[in-house]
Every structure is written in C-alpha cells, then in structure tokens.
Nucleic acid binder design. Structure first.
Length: 896
RNA sequence: GCCCGGGUGGUGAAAUCGGUAGACACAAGAGACUUAAAAUCUCUCGCCUUUCAGGUGUACGGGUUCAAGUCCCGUCCCGGGCACCA
C-alpha cells in the first residue's frame, strides 16, 4: 500500500546479532527485556511471521482492532486494545488458523486542525509525522501485525474510493441534500462541532452559539433501519449490551401518524406522530418545533414569538442540551381542529420539540404524558383525563402520578364511543376512524435519522460534487476522481480554508462545461472508518474499491473485532450500514454482518487532580506530579503537588484524556520495563470489557513475575535439558498433583483465551501453577522431566500475552524451535484423573467442615460420610436432618 | 432528561450454570539473608469478639431459595453514550 511517506516493511537498522540465535548462546541469568525483545522482533520480521496470505486449506481468522486516530503517540487505551487483539491473533495462530491482523490509521479529523492552529503545522504534515512515530511504537510492542496491509485514510489512494462510492450512492438516491442544523459561531463565522461548544459558547471565541440551517448531504441510513434492527438478532457474538444500545438507537416505534386540519383552512394540515393514539381525546394543545413552518409563519406578525424562536435557536444542537434545558413554550395564535371532535386546539412552539424527529410536531396530552403535564401546569393549559386505572387514587390536576401514563392497565374514559377500551383496542379503533377520514394511519416510526455527512472543515475527504448554475449538483465523473485535498494550507480557525482557495473550488461543470463551483465541505470521518476493514483484504488494489479477497477474509463476518465501548453505537452502526450498502451496489456479495464477534474493551481510567484558577477554570495536574496522602487504612485524605508541596483537589476517576491531563504515557512503561511487562500488566489488571483503573503499583509486580519465570527456567536449563514428561506414571503423589494442575491450567488458559476472553484469570492460573511448581520437589529424574514439561508449557501458555519472553524461554528449553509456530498446549485427560475429592459440608447453609470421598462415590455414601463428619455432628446438635442436599463435586448441605 | 454499564478487603480483582466469598496480585507489617541497601525468600493480612473457637460480611432496604456477590422488587452513588470528538 503506497503511503505518502514512511512506507512500511522490514524494520531497518536493527542489529542482526540476535536474529540468528535460534540456537542459543548460553542463557543469561538475568532477564534483560530490551535484548530479548529486539531479538524476537527481528526474528519475526525476518521470518515474516505476521504475514497473512489467503490460503483456502486453513480456516481463516480475521482479527481486527479498531484503528487508531494518529493523535501523536499511543495512549494506554491503544496498548490495551491492540494487546487484546494480539493475544487472540497469536492464540489462534497456535490453534492452526490462518490469521490476519492488520493495522491502519483513521487519519482525518479535527485534532489535526487544532494542532495546526496551535503549532502552525499543516494538518497533513502533522498527521504523517504522528503516523511514523506511532507505527514505531506499535512495532516496539511486538504485535503480530501484517504491516504490508497498512493503510491511512487521508491518502488519495484510500479516499478516492469513498468519493467513487459517494457518486454511485448519489445517483441511486441513497445520498441526498437537505437542510441540516449546525452550531454557528457568530464571532469566528464558522461551524462548530458539538465538542467545540462548551456551555453553549464557542471554545475559541466564547461567543454564544446559534443554531443555523445549512444545506448538507445525507446518507439514507433510514432506508436500512428495519434490516439493521432485525439483523441484530443474528449477532450472538456481540455483547447483549451493545445490541440493546443499537436497538434503542434505531428506536422503532409503532404508532399513528395523523393530521390536524388548520382551523381557518381545512385543506392545510399539521401532521404529528404519536405512540399514544389512545389518548387522542385528551389533546388540549399541539406543540411544534421552533424550526417548524407553522412557527415561522406565526412569527411573521408576532414579534414576541419571533424573539422566542430566536431564543430557542440559541444553545447547542446536542440532544443532551435539549433534554436538560428548561421546557419553554409560546402560543402561536394559530388554531387547528381536532380530527375526531372538531374542537379547536391551539398550536404552541415548544423548545423541547425536535424538528428532526417525525414531523417536528407533537400532540400534547397533559393528563397522560409527564412532560406535557408539567408544560400545561406552567402555562395554565387545560388537562383532560381520558384514561383511568382501576384501584388507583383519583386523578389530580396538580400533581403527576406514575399511573397516568400506564398503558398496560389503563381503560379509556371521557372518550365517547371509545370508552372502556384498553390501549391496543383503542389505538386500533382510533386509527381506523382516522384512516376512514383520510386523516391518518398506523405508522412505524424510527428514532434513527438519516446521517448528515457534510462537515464544514478542511481535514477530511472532499465531497465529490460540483455545483453548476444550470445543471445543479453534479457528481464528479470517475475519470476526474479523486478530488485531491490540497495539503499545504494555512489553518486560521475561521471557516474552511478550501472555501478560500479558488484554485480548489473553481472548476468546470462536467455536464455543460460552464463555470462551476466545487463543493468545499468534506465528509464526516465516520465515512472512512465505515469500510476500512474491507479494504484491509485488498489494500494494494488500484483499480477497484474492493476485490474478491474480501470474500476470503470477511465471509461470515470478521472473526473478532475489538475496540472501545464508546463506539458501541455510531461507528458500529455505520459499518453495518456500509456493508449492506456495498452489498446492494454489488461490490462485495452477501457477507452477512461485518463483525461476527465483538469485544468492547472498557476504558482506561485514572484519578484526576486540579486546582481552581481565576474565572472558574481548572488547571488539571498529571497524577505523576502529585503525592496522595492516605490515612492508616490507605484511604486518600488529600493530595499535594510534588513541585511545591501545596494541596491540590482530588477530582473523579475519569477516562484518560488530554483535557483532564490524567494520562500515563505507555512509552515510559515500555522504556523502563519492556513491552512484555506492559502487555502483561495491562492484561492482568482487569478483564478486557471492564474499565481499567490505572495504578503504577502493580507494573512492578508484573515485571517481578517475568523475572521470576526467567530465573526459574534459567535454573532448570543450567541443570541440563531433559525430555519432557508425557505421562504421570512414576511420579510421586505431589508430582502427580503438580502435573494435574499443569494440565488443568492448560484447559483453563485455553478456555479463558478462546471462549471467555478473560485474560486476567488466565494469567492468575499460570501464576498459581508457577507457585505450585516452586513448592514441589522435582530433583529426581521423573521430577526433572516434569519440570521440563511444565516450563515448556508455561512458555507456550503465556506466549500470546508476552511473546518476546515466551519465544526466548522456549528457545532455551527446546533449541531450534519457534514458540509462535507450536500448537497450543492441550490438556491430557489422563493427567486430570483424581481418585479422591474434597466436599464441603454445610449445616443449614453454613460451612461447618469438609469430607474426603472417592471421586465416584454415590450419593448415599456421600450423605453418610457428611452426617458423621465432625463439623456436622457438632452443629446438628443431635437434631435429625430434615433434608440433605448433595451437590456433586461441590458440597453437602444438611438442613435440620 | 433519556439510554447503557458498574458498586466485593487498604488497592486491582476472583468466584464461568444459584453451591467453600476474597483465588491471583499490589500495598502494608513481621522475620531470614546482608557490613548496609537493593534484590530474593518465609510468614501475617475483610471486620468484630471471650481467638486450638465463634459471630459477621459482597453499596443500601426488602423478597425468593436447603443455599444469593450471583435471581426478583425498590433506593442511593459512580462512570459512559446521546447523532459535528474519534
């Protein structure tokens, strides 16, 4: 894959001294991570260990980690993400799969523009430098990545294909233009991202942000809403949580869409959607969004309404802002007729009504909707009860009660011919009547909105459209693609630089040849990340977007996808959407869902510390610069800055971020202890799907464990290599116990890596094994063979997590052998056999002792043994057992 | 506000299908080795008590069960997402 610079391949300049050392020099007595890591990495480079080649004779395993944004250097979340991916990749290689683990760069985005503003570097130069540095960091962590498949989304070789796809979708009507709402900074004259709006003000200018409507391009994701929803049920390899989040996001609701004819002109209608059509007789007003045409019309001759609408347009466009702000409204003076009663109902403008959902208007039933109730109380609007629940207290017009909105138990009242009907019957009857009047019908409504992809920013993929006065919007023809983003620009923070570059936007219309203007908006960066995983299958193809190799790697879905839980909705939904779009455009056949198995790793969090500055701002202080004072129980009581010894405030524990200055640099960890310690610690600290609370303590422990493993293996190698034990015959009983534990551990670790994806418990199991190993006398011949078997196995069991030391130890134990190409250790059933087992004895559910019984003892003899055991006799106090519960292999509970 | 998670010792955590709560580590304390320190090794380590034993304990309050960290109902607290951050 040609990149603009820093193209990949063999690491240059590494010493070849260690690379030929498959046959080792005498083993060093000290664990020296720098040396063994360099040696192992050089060896893998030379042997092409991570190269992925299509091979129909082996089952494939495509292991994908979410590609990083090249922000400058790796952060702890990256290390966690890619270590998980690497463990699974290496484990599956050892299981005999043909593994592909690719890597690339999600290289467009705002931080590059922010950096350009701060440091006066063009975003492209900044991005490519970051990529070069971060690639080196990834390599130093020893990930088995096929670097020949590397891609960066900011290269024309990549983004030309999404421009191509865009023009196809535009022709099919799956991309279209309409007005969209953006945050407008009136001082900087620029559009701001939600992230750049802090407390309703622009992040740079401090100006109050306004909502503004501008033309934007949209992807018709709603056309796929139903499929995106139903396919969620075919994703057993996804966390239930993520499927539920997507389900709620798509938000299918069935209800009724109906119209209120305007009172003074029945031909004109105000359409609304409701899931509570049963309460239609309780409508006392209608509320529309500030952007609704009726609101605009009413405001034309009502200055105070116009002012209110302007006020509604202040503040952010984020749903959270809208939901938490005070609900306000104003009457328009426009009346509509109730479709069933003909009664006049006033139209209000409400700041809580979203123009982007449904028709931008809602019927209001204060009696049976909590928000409407509060609104009616505030503005003295009528409240009309139309649903009653048997056995509930009488309806109060002053205070809301939960049962008012109960659609399970409710029966209609005060609703004429609908009285007595329950929710479903009432909705059916009302929908039928509205339909007969041609004023409405049942409708499925999705919360999912079409995806606005236009960004008024520079560092992104140019939208391939040409605006012509005579021909309108014309897609850029294939032979003029790609529309290359100019890379040497000045970023000023006010507006897009592209809109100030006539050499970019001045062009000819491809249809009529007349003067035309090129679109200067770029695409949402989610566009790039919605299909990169398909491009990894064929990154070198210069003639098509994707080719048949996608079938090999992606058929049935990518085998494992790993990434942050923060992407649970948008990125994963858009990627699923793209896979279906590309199928329908005929690009990839039917692969099914793109990600068969999904692992959402938790965030890496750390404590925050700060000092209050003037003007309500906070100065965030890095945890590394702080001493935490604790009481005698270790609870933190305060913190001081190392530099001046004065107090700082302890903030919450939050995701590591630049803005909170609570990041810990993984590089310092790697420099000090090596990649294996970093990998081991991060996998040991908590299970992958939970958030990982960072603490420097513990890293030392991981390093100590590796040192101890090294020393233990060294001592064994010094005493001379022997052939590994293959049977428990001739072992002492303590040795047989150790061998049983060894084989139990093999099963446990394979299950933890493969099925459970709980790496912390796998590591703990190996630690237990090493503890047992140290306690066992292995000096005799049989013991030496068992030691050989155990140490060889440990090197392989840990290899996926700590591959460098795993490789080095294995080479010492089995000269000439390569750990990464060995089969993963498999438990021998014969070694697991046990003659006698221990069962716990409970009396009334409390632990009172234990018994040892033969492994195949029957229930009666277990009961007898339990009833006569010392603890049972003592606590039964001579009473007769009422019941005895035997849980095989676990315990006996005697109830007296 | 809505949606989704989480809450277990001084700390990170384990307990996989309702069956021994605290595995494995970190920190701390005591001891051994050492001229000394580091490293290493051994032991102690939820809380309470009358300590060769017993009580109690998984955010809080209820419930189901022979048995609940685990299941059910309610409450509190913490974290994440909410469509232009990636």
């Amino acid at each position: 894959m040609p990149l603009h610079r820093g193209s990949t391949g063999i690491i240059q300049g590494y010493s070849t001294f260690y690379s030929d050392r498959i046959q080792p020099m005498p083993m060093q007595d000290k664990y020296t991570p720098a040396d063994i890591e360099r040696a192992a990495q050089t060896h893998w480079e030379k042997t092409g260990a991570a190269r992925a080649v299509e091979d129909s004779t082996k089952p494939k395993y495509y292991c994908l980690s979410m590609f990083p944004y090249p922000s400058g250097k790796l952060h702890m979340g990256h290390v966690r993400n890619y270590t998980i991916g690497d463990v699974l990749s290496r484990f599956h290689t050892m299981l005999g799969f043909n593994v592909m683990q690719p890597m690339g760069w999600d290289a467009f985005g705002m931080p590059a523009e922010n950096a350009a503003l701060a440091n006066n570097v063009p975003p492209a130069a900044w991005t490519y430098e970051n990529i070069d540095y971060m690639r080196t960091q990834l390599k130093s962590l020893g990930f088995a990545i096929d670097w020949e498949r590397e891609l960066a989304t900011c290269t024309p070789e990549y983004y030309r294909w999404e421009q191509w796809l865009f023009t196809r979708l535009y022709e099919k009507g799956l991309v279209y233009k309409k007005l969209g709402t953006v945050n407008w900074d009136p001082v900087d004259h620029t559009v701001l991202a939600n992230e750049q709006v802090i407390d309703g003000r622009g992040w740079r200018s401090g100006a109050l942000i306004e909502k503004r409507e501008i033309p934007m391009y949209y992807m018709k994701i709603t056309a796929y809403a139903e499929e995106l929803l139903t396919e969620l049920d075919n994703l057993p390899g996804w966390p239930e949580q993520v499927r539920l989040m997507q389900k709620n996001w798509i938000g299918k609701s069935t209800g009724v869409r109906f119209a209120f004819p305007l009172a003074d002109n029945a031909d004109e209608k105000l359409w609304v959607f409701t899931t509570r059509a049963d309460t239609i007789m309780g409508v006392t007003f209608v509320a529309v969004a500030a952007e609704h045409p009726l609101a605009t019309r009413a405001a034309a001759n009502k200055p105070e309404l116009a002012a209110f609408i302007e006020e509604c347009k202040k503040g952010g466009v984020a749903e959270a802002d809208i939901a938490t702000m005070e609900k306000k409204g104003m009457a328009t003076g426009i009346y509509v007729s109730h479709p069933l009663t003909g009664q006049e109902v006033e139209v209000w403008v409400g700041n809580y009504v979203l123009m982007s959902y449904g028709d931008g208007a809602v019927m209001a039933v204060p009696a049976h909707d909590e928000r409407d109730f509060a609104f009616a109380l505030k503005y003295n609007l009528p409240i009309r009860q139309v649903v009653a629940v048997d056995g509930e207290t009488s309806f109060s017009h002053e205070a809301w009660a939960e049962w008012y909105a109960d659609k399970q138990r409710g029966k209609l009242v005060n609703s004429g011919k609908y009285d007595g009907l329950g929710y479903e019957a009432a909705v059916d009857a009302i929908a039928t009547d509205l339909s007969a009047m041609q004023l409405g019908e049942k409708k499925v409504q999705f919360r999912l909105r079409d995806w606005g992809i236009s960004r008024q920013r520079y560092w992104g993929c140019p939208i391939p459209i040409i605006h012509c006065k005579t021909c309108g919007d014309v897609p850029v023809p294939d032979d003029q693609l790609p529309v290359v983003l100019p890379e040497n620009v000045e970023i000023t923070g006010a507006g897009s630089p592209l809109a100030k570059m006539p050499e970019f936007y001045e062009c000819k219309c491809p249809k009529c040849g007349g003067d035309a203007r090129r679109e200067t908006d770029t695409m949402d960066t989610f566009f790039e990340s919605s299909w990169y995983f398909l491009r990894y299958a064929c990154p070198d193809n210069t003639t098509t977007m994707v080719d048949e190799r996608v079938q090999y790697w992606c058929k049935g879905g990518i085998d494992q996808y790993i990434g942050g839980i923060e992407h649970a909705i948008l990125h994963l939904l858009y990627s699923r959407f793209f896979t279906k779009l590309m199928r329908d455009v005929g690009l990839i056949g039917d692969l099914g869902e793109p990600f068969a198995n999904l692992l959402t790793q938790g965030m890496v969090v750390a404590p925050t510390f700060y000092r209050d500055l003037d003007g309500g701002k906070k100065q965030w202080i890095n945890p590394a610069d702080v001493d935490v004072v604790t009481d005698e129980k270790g609870r933190p009581t305060g913190a001081t800055l190392k530099a001046d010894g004065l107090a700082v405030v302890i903030g919450g524990t939050e995701k590591m971020s630049k803005s909170k200055n609570n990041g810990v640099d993984p590089q310092s960890l790697i420099d000090q202890y090596g990649a294996d310690t970093a990998r081991l610690f991060i996998m040991f600290a908590s299970p992958p799907d939970q958030s990982l609370e960072w603490s420097d303590a513990g890293v030392e422990g991981a390093y100590r464990f590796l040192r101890r493993l090294w020393k233990t293996t060294y001592d064994h190698v010094q005493a001379g290599l022997v052939t590994a034990c293959t049977s428990s015959d001739g072992l002492s009983s303590a040795q047989a116990d150790l061998r049983r534990k060894l084989h139990q551990t093999m099963g446990k670790v394979a299950d933890d890596y493969g099925r459970r994806k709980q790496f912390n418990t796998a590591i703990a199991a190996v630690m237990e094994l090493l503890n047992a190993f140290d306690k066992c006398d292995l000096k005799d011949t049989a013991g030496r063979a068992l030691a050989q078997e155990t140490l060889e196995s440990i090197a392989l069991l840990l290899f996926p997590i700590v591959p460098h030391i795993g490789q080095a130890l294995y080479v010492e134990l089995k000269p000439g052998q390569d750990a990464g190409t060995q089969a993963f250790p498999k438990a021998d059933p014969a070694a697991l056999k046990q003659d006698e087992i221990e069962l716990m004895v409970q009396v009334n559910g409390k632990l009172r002792g234990s018994i040892r019984v033969a492994a195949e003892a029957d229930k009666a003899s277990i009961e007898a043994a339990a009833l006569t055991s010392e603890g049972a006799v003592k606590f039964m106090e001579g009473k007769a057992p009422k019941k005895v519960v035997v849980v095989p292999g676990r315990l006996v509970n005697i109830v007296v």
